[in-house]
Amino acid sequence: MCLGIPGKVTELYTANGMKMGRVDFGGVVKEACLEYLPDIRVGDYTIVHVGFGISQLDEDEARQTLALLREMDMLAGELPELAEAP
């Protein structure tokens, strides 16, 4: 129901009393309201929906889960990619 796209905060400032920021979505930069993310800092990733940051991405969690999923890949056994690996 809700399109939310992850982007990296590149700049923080205040406008009309709101915490605002510039968010880089893979080379496309858009202003976002970050008022709902009191702890977010420049360099952090956020999910933006209709111009509002709704979440600060937990990058450690993401790394761990992906590692786990890739491990599952290894454990899956006779994968052709594995057979070809040096």
Partner: peptide
């Protein structure tokens, strides 16, 4: 319009209208 995801953004627009 929207679910709980969009409601905070719409709510903030109202708060800002009032503040400004």
């Amino acid at each position: 319009i929207g679910f709980e995801t969009t409601a905070p953004a719409n709510a903030m627009a109202v708060v800002q209208a009032k503040n400004q």
